[in-house]
Design a protein around this nucleic acid. Structure first.
Length: 545
RNA sequence: GCGUCUGUAGCUCAGCUGGAUAGAGCAAUGGUCUUCGAAACCAUUGGCCGCAGGUUCGAAUCCUGCCAGACGCACCA
C-alpha cells in the first residue's frame, strides 16, 4: 500500500525536475518512515534533507517545491513541511480502510509475501549433543529457530529445518562408557571415573533401565541404547515445546556413506589440505581464519570439524543456497573456520549465516542455579516448561534480542504467570473470538467488508487499530530480512494494547446494526492478524482461556 | 594479552537502512466491573541512552579510545 504514496512523491520530483526546479541528478533513496508522534503524520519523508547538499538550498525550500506538486489525491488528507525539512503525510481514512478488505480476502495469508522468491534455505538449530537432556539454553535456540522458520516461510522462502545429531564422536563414546561404569557400580563393582565422563542423575536412570531390560555390560549394547533413549528425550521435549524438525541428520551417516572422506578429498584436490606433525590440516587461514585447523588427528581419528565440513558440503549439494546455523554464543570462535569452509567449497561466505544466541542463566529467587552436565546438578528444559509453560517460556525468549545475554528467573516467570505478556496477547485473541460469539448470540448478521459501510469506523481508536493492521506485512518482512522474530512480539504487544484499550471504551455489538457490522469487520481483521502473528511466534492462539 | 557480544527508567528489555520532545512491560501510587471476559483499562512517578572524543543539518544508533560484564582463543564440542 505504501507503494502508491512513494509513486506519487516520485512523480512530483520528476515533474519538478523537468520544470527545472530541482537539479540533483542522482536522487537519494526514497523511503517512508513512520513518525513516532501522531502530529507528524502517518508517513514522513526526509528526501529534502538528503538533497540539501547537492541542491545547495535549505531543506525546507526543497520540500516546498516538492510539496506543491502533490495535491488532490483522495488517499492523502494533507502533506506539510515540518521540523528541519521533513515532509509529513496525513493519509485519509479511505486509504486505511482498504486494509480490512485485504485481510478479509487473504485470511491466514495476510502478512505473507514473496521476497524469498522460493529461495532454498537450510535452517539448522538446537543440534544439542545427544549426551544428556536439553537445558534452558537449548530452549532459547529452539524458540528462535522455530519462530524464524515460520517467519521465513511466510516471507516466501523454501525452508527446511534440521537437527544435526553428533552421534559419531568421542562424546557419545564417553556417554557409553559412563553408562557402562554406572552399570558396574550398580553391580557392586568399584570403578574409577575419569574427568570427561557424565555423572548426571539421568546416567543412573539409563544404566538402571538398561540392566532391567537385560542388557549386557558391553559398549556395543550400552552405547546405542543410551543414544537412542536420549534422542527420544530430545525429540519428546522439543515436541512438548512445539518445535519439530523436517529432518534429524545423523553425523554417523556422513561416515557410513563416505561423505566425510569425499569432502576431504575434494579439498585435497584444491590443495587446501596439508600434512604436518602427523595430522591433516585445512588451510582456513587462506580464508581469514586465525590459524589452520586439524581435520584428521595424529592418531588417525577425524575431528568434529571433519564431519562439519562434510555436512555443509552436503547441504550445498542438496541445493540449498543459504545456510543458517543457530549456535550458542560459546561456539562463536568456530565461525571463521566454518566460513572458511564455505568459501573453500566455492560459495560466497555470506551464504552461511550464523546466528548466535547468548547464554541464559537460570535463576531461582535471584540465585543462580548451577548448571553442569558433569556434576549432574542441573534443571532440564522439560522441568522449566512443566513449571512455567511452553508458551510463556517461548515468549520470554522471543521478546529479547538473541545477542544479549539474559537471566531466566523461574520464580519471577512463575509468579507473573497470569500477568506474563504472552497471556496479554492470547487474551486479545480470545477476546476477539468472544465478541464473535456474542454477536452470533445476538443474531447480528455478519457481512463481508464489501457489504458494509466501513466509513462508520472513524473513531481515532479505530483508525489507530486499522493502521496497526496495515503495518503487519511490513513487520513480517522486516523480521524475515533481519532474522529477528522479536519484532513480531513487539508488534503484537502494541496491537493487543490498542485493542484492549478500545474494547474498554467502546462496545462492538450494539443496537446500531450498521455500526456493529462495520466494527465486526474490524474485529475479524484483528482476530486474523493476531492469530497469524501468534502463529509466526510459535505460540498458541486460544479461542478462550 | 587477542577476539566476539552486551551496557538505555528501581527491575526485565524494545528502539527497524542515523531523524523531530528516547518507548513498553513489571514494580510503586491512585482510580475503573448492572451492559461483548477486569488475564483488561485509565492516570501519576521514574532517564548525563556506561564514560570521553569524533563524523554532520541531526547520533542511543556510525567511527576511535577507555571502563564494566559474559563468552571464546585445542589434534574437546
Amino acid at each position: 500500500m505504501k507503494e502508491i504514496l512513494i509513486e506519487i512523491i516520485r512523480n512530483a520530483i520528476t515533474e519538478a525536475k523537468t520544470a527545472g526546479e530541482i537539479e540533483t541528478k542522482e536522487l537519494p533513496p526514497l523511503y517512508l518512515e513512520a513518525p513516532k508522534k501522531p502530529e507528524h503524520g502517518d508517513f514522513a519523508v526526509n528526501i529534502a534533507m538528503k538533497m540539501a547538499q547537492t541542491e545547495g538550498k535549505p531543506p525546507r525550500k526543497i520540500a516546498e517545491t516538492i510539496i506543491k506538486r502533490i495535491t488532490g489525491h483522495p488517499i492523502i488528507d494533507k502533506a506539510e513541511i515540518a521540523g528541519p525539512g521533513f515532509i509529513n503525510f496525513f493519509m485519509s481514512n479511505e486509504y486505511w480502510l482498504k486494509t480490512l478488505s485485504e485481510i478479509e480476502t487473504l485470511g491466514e495469508n495476510y502478512g505473507k509475501c514473496s521476497i524469498g522468491k522460493g529461495q532454498k534455505i537450510l535452517l539448522e538449530y538446537v543440534s544439542a549433543n545427544p549426551t544428556g537432556p536439553l537445558h534452558i539454553g537449548h530452549g532459547r535456540g529452539a524458540a528462535l529457530g522455530d519462530s524464524l522458520s515460520r517467519i521465513l516461510r511466510a516471507a516466501g522462502y523454501d525452508v527446511a529445518t534440521e537437527f544435526y545429531i553428533n552421534d559419531a564422536g568421542s562424546q557419545v563414546q564417553n556417554l557409553a562408557l559412563s553408562v557402562l561404569l554406572r552399570c558396574r557400580e550398580i553391580k557392586g563393582e568399584e570403578v574409577e571415573w575419569s574427568e570427561n565422563l557424565y555423572k548426571g542423575e539421568y546416567v543412573n536412570d539409563l544404566a538402571q533401565e538398561f540392566l532391567e531390560k537385560g542388557g549386557k555390560i558391553i559398549v556395543e549394547q550400552a552405547g546405542p541404547y543410551a543414544l537412542n533413549e536420549i534422542l527420544g528425550w530430545l525429540r519428546r521435549d522439543l515436541e512438548g515445546f512445539n518445535v519439530t524438525f523436517d529432518k534429524w541428520f545423523s553425523e554417523k551417516s556422513l561416515y557410513d556413506s563416505d561423505k566425510v572422506q569425499k569432502a576431504i578429498d575434494w579439498l585435497k584436490q584444491k590443495a587446501l589440505m596439508y600434512d604436518k606433525d602427523g595430522a591433516l590440516w585445512f588451510r582456513s587461514t587462506d580464508f581469514g581464519d586465525d590459524k589452520d585447523r586439524v581435520v584428521i588427528r595424529e592418531n588417525g581419528e577425524p575431528t568434529y570439524f571433519a564431519s562439519d565440513i562434510a555436512y555443509h558440503h552436503d547441504k550445498f549439494q542438496r541445493g540449498f543456497n543459504t545456510l543458517i546455523n543457530i549456535w550458542g554464543a560459546d561456539h562463536h570462535g568456530y565461525i571463521p573456520r566454518m566460513k572458511a569452509v564455505v568459501q573453500a567449497l566455492g560459495h560466497d561466505k555470506e551464504s552461511l549465516k550464523v546466528l548466535l544466541v547468548q547464554m541464559v542463566s537460570l535463576l531461582r529467587n535471584g540465585q543462580p542455579v548451577i548448571m553442569s552436565k558433569r556434576s549432574g546438578e542441573f534443571i532440564t528444559l522439560k522441568e522449566v516448561m512443566d513449571e512455567v509453560g511452553a508458551d510463556a517460556a517461548k515468549y520470554t525468549f522471543l521478546t529479547r534480542r538473541p545477542d544479549s545475554q539474559m537471566d531466566f528467573d523461574l520464580e519471577i516467570v512463575k509468579s507473573q504467570s497470569s500477568e506474563n505478556p504472552v497471556y496479554y496477547m492470547q487474551y486479545a485473541y480470545a477476546r476477539a473470538c468472544n465478541i464473535e460469539r456474542f454477536a452470533e448470540e445476538k443474531n447480528l448478521t455478519i457481512l463481508p467488508a464489501s457489504k458494509v459501510n466501513l466509513g462508520l469506523l472513524k473513531l481515532p481508536e479505530e483508525i489507530r487499530i486499522i493502521k496497526a493492521l496495515t503495518a503487519y506485512p511490513e513487520v513480517v518482512e522486516g523480521a524475515a530480512l533481519s532474522f529477528e522474530p522479536h519484532r513480531l512480539t513487539a508488534y503484537l504487544q502494541e496491537l493487543a494494547g490498542h485493542f484492549h484499550s478500545y474494547y474498554r471504551g467502546n462496545r462492538v455489538v450494539t443496537d446500531d446494526i450498521p455500526l456493529s457490522q462495520a466494527r465486526m469487520v474490524m474485529i475479524k481483521g484483528l482476530k486474523t492478524v493476531i492469530g497469524n502473528a501468534l502463529g509466526l511466534v510459535g505460540v498458541s492462539a486460544p479461542k478462550s482461556m
